[in-house]
């Protein structure tokens, strides 16, 4: 654990770097100084960290630093560029880099989901609105871009607030994470749990069983549950199936066993359904309400008079004496 003053010094350095980059009239040289300062502060803080807790090493290794630098540099570019479209494109870079980090963390499904949802759907919508709103301006010349894009609002206040928060978070990370207990790194219980999960998915098990040589015609046992009995170390399992009208035991081992238990998508799906069913329903409700909200917000507002509303619902009009339309004959 390095002294707290070192970490806070690096945080202040990072804040100064961001301030240099946010300057409205920043020259190229000042921006360069800011970039070097910022990257130095970021890697400096990373270098102070212990490299493992309780013997638990996180995956990533040499991939971490490039991805981390890409995402932080693009994030800073995103908030300092004066072109909103470039900001959106830099955000795509952040998403791509962090999806690389997700893959190294063993979350392959999320890595792809983040790219599809963020870079594919959300960012396209942002770009669409951005271009719709900007068609009147010519963004080629620096001076013709709108001032609200060229000048930061209260850069000092913003940087101070954000980096006070960062200082608190850094302090917590340096003092707190060492006290967390990492997950049980013994792989055997995890593998046995994965086999149990797979045992509840007979279709998936049969997909794998028919890939075993001479078991291409294996069938599910009729009227009873499929029995999957894993070995003691969880590296292979015995499945009881029907082969040539007789019960037979098939071994799933090697590559097929690996396919059966190391399945991130199925694992996440089962965890989602088993542990958070109500949250899943609520997420659906939130999405539906967001859709209604967006439709209501963005629809064209048509002002209807009381008479028009009554006519639309099939009621006769009410005549008002001070209303100029009241002299008209009602059609209803």
């Amino acid at each position: 654990m390095p002294p707290a003053s070192v970490i806070h010094a690096f945080t202040v350095l990072a804040a100064a770097a961001l301030l240099l980059l946010l300057r409205p009239t920043g020259s190229t040289r000042l921006r360069l100084v800011g970039a070097v300062l910022g990257i130095g502060a970021f890697t400096g803080i990373l270098a102070q960290l212990p490299t493992f807790y309780d013997g638990q090493v996180m995956p990533g290794g040499t991939f971490f630093l490039p991805f981390a630098l890409i995402s932080v540099i693009s994030a800073v570019q995103m908030i300092t560029t004066s072109r909103p479209v470039y900001a959106a494109l830099h955000f795509v870079l952040v998403v791509l880099a962090s999806s690389g980090l997700l893959v190294t963390l063993g979350a392959e499904f999320l890595g792809f989901a983040v790219v599809i949802v963020y870079a594919g759907a959300i960012l396209i919508t942002y770009m669409f609105v951005l271009m719709l709103a900007q068609q009147a301006q010519s963004p080629d010349l620096e001076d013709e871009r709108p001032t609200y894009d060229r000048f930061a609002r209260e850069p000092i206040g913003g940087a101070v607030v954000a980096f006070l928060l960062l200082a608190f978070m850094n302090h917590l990370i340096f003092t707190g994470t060492g006290e967390l207990t990492p997950g049980d790194s013994d792989p055997v219980p995890a593998r046995l749990a994965a086999w149990e999960r797979v045992g509840n998915m007979p279709g998936r098990v049969m997909e794998l069983v028919v890939q075993v040589p001479e078991c291409e015609l294996a069938l599910l046992p009729e009227g009873e549950a499929l029995r999957v009995v894993p070995d003691r170390d969880g590296l292979a399992a015995t499945v009881t199936v029907v082969l040539d009208d007789a019960p037979a035991e098939v071994r799933l081992e090697g590559e097929l066993a690996r396919l059966a238990i190391e399945d991130n998508i199925r694992g996440v799906g089962v965890a989602l359904i088993e542990a958070f069913p109500v949250s899943l329903e609520l997420a659906g409700v939130v999405l539906t309400m967001a859709m209604f909200g967006a439709v209501i917000l963005a629809r064209r507002q048509i002002e209807l008079t009381e008479d028009e509303k009554r006519e639309a619902s099939g009621l006769p009009r009410i005549g008002h004496h001070d209303d100029p339309n009241s002299g008209e004959v009602t059609h209803g």
């Binding site: 490299t51 638990q56 996180m58 971490f64 954000a162 978070m169 990370i173 994470t177």
Partner: peptide, 20 residues
């Protein structure tokens, strides 16, 4: 120092992105 990672590395990156 960057050959081996701990949880803190990912958290520091996350904190920086959040602050930015």
């Amino acid at each position: 120092v960057f050959g081996q990672l701990a949880l803190g590395h990912y958290l520091i990156l996350s904190a920086f992105l959040f602050a930015i």
